[in-house]
Design a protein around this nucleic acid. Sequence first.
DNA 1: CGTCTTTGACCTGCGC
DNA 2: GCGCAGGTCAAAGACG
Length: 308
Amino acid sequence: MDFSSWINTSLDLNINPPRVYEEVIKKEVGTNFFSLGMRMSSTKEESSNDLVEELKRVSAENKKLTEMLTDMCDSYNTLRSNLVDYMRKNSEKDQHNLSFKKRKPESSNNNNSNPMVVNNGNSQGSSTDEESCKKRREESIKSKISRVYVKTEGSDTSLIVKDGYQWRKYGQKVTRDNPSPRAYFKCSFAPSCPVKKKVQRSVEDQSILVATYEGEHNHPHPSQMEATSGSSRCMTLNSASCNSFAPTDALELTKSKSSNGSKNVNPKIVTPEVPQTLVEQMANSLTKDPNFRAALISAISGRALHKN
DNA sequence: CGTCTTTGACCTGCGC
DNA sequence: GCGCAGGTCAAAGACG
């Protein structure tokens, strides 16, 4: 699948203001200045009125552009979430098949050949409805596992992966396959949030932290909630992202330590299994980040006004 | 004093 | 049934 097209669509859209708009401004402002020059004799009041008028017009255009930009982002996010849903459904099918191969032969009861399908009254066998529901939930959570690799400083021995969410550590264990301890975290931002996170250093490279996320957050990203509390439009955008790990993963790029050399300025997040997902997440977080959008808007308006 | 972290105990699933 | 390993709980301590 070609994820690059998504990025191009959104970033080009945001970075390059429509040429038509530039020309309109150039023309209008130029005309205005020309007319101003021709009317040197007119009063200062008139010229300042013209300028104010022009400013108003530019502001209105700016507003329009901002709305266009937001709408585009909306459309992009809707498309993206649809695609992610579609891909998830496909992967669920695959994982379901795989997990059933791994399951104990107990499943030979065959009281429910598909855990993702609602049990239609088949209450016979060793599994009760409750159990099958529990299994379905577990399967569902398992199917939403993502892994994030974070490069850290060699001296940094903490098992903390900053992703913007609030985590409560509830356990630490040394596993057999890895001498470094594994830390267990639960999302503490919302009491009902089922997301868990396991963090452990990589066996191959101790400077790499491997964070494994299980489940989906049932709340928006905390930082986005703060940043967008005054904008209903942005809340809409955020709601599109709150069910994915995109902010989590992508934020690693922006919130990482930058105290040391170039190697650690941008700790590497590598998802070897699904690198396209990382690309998607980066683009996604950029286009949804209200700060980025605000900066973009001011840059565009600044550029337009700079023509004056 | 409330929140968070630590850490040993306990639980659960799985293989033998 | 037993032992092992991974995951979770919860009391105690640290910290702001």
